[in-house]
Amino acid sequence: MFFFALIVKPLVLFILGLNKRGQNNLPVKGPAIIAANHNSHLDTLVLMSLFPIAKIHKIRPVAAADYFLRSGFMKWFSTYCIDIIPLDRKNRVNKKALFAECHKALDNGDILILFPEGSRGTPEQMSQLKKGVFHLVKDRDDTQVTPVVLRGLGRALPKGTALFVPFNCDVVIGQPVPAQEKADDFIKLLASRYDNLFQYCVTHQEPEQ
């Protein structure tokens, strides 16, 4: 909590600078899921900073256990400063066990942050969306998925670099995606929502390589 009040909020406000759109669409209480595109480690911090300090403990990013619980500092930081829900990416067989922690958090009224792309990938380019989000909300009628697009963070701190360069970033929050019968329909709908939200971005997209 202090970490967010003293470090993350000022950092996001001044060093980065956000162009926020659709703040009203942000869920105020859980259970809810935020599904955002993923370009940078900063994504999680920016998304969490959208919420008031008093609510930070209810915001739980879902993150890969094999990456974030790997070493000493990273494990301590992810667990105590961010309070992630670790996800075992290698265990693809047993969906129930995979999402057990997530369901527990949702039952507890938490707001989950998910990145359906699965990984940060190439900076500022969308990767194929994974179906995990669909399976997570399939049997829950109390939980809605709010799509959020972020742009510019892949310029500020892309994958594989340690040099942070200040850039303004866009955060566009959309309306919740209605529930679907089939996973493919849900993914298609989510992808089209992302495309739509990208139109409201101000910052410039990185040119195709």
């Binding site: 600078g17 900076p123 310029r155 892309p158 360069v165």
Partner: peptide, 12 residues
């Protein structure tokens, strides 16, 4: 610099 195009190589 955020609204104009830039290349990944320009970050430094």
């Amino acid at each position: 610099l955020s609204i104009v195009p830039s290349r990944p190589a320009d970050r430094r």
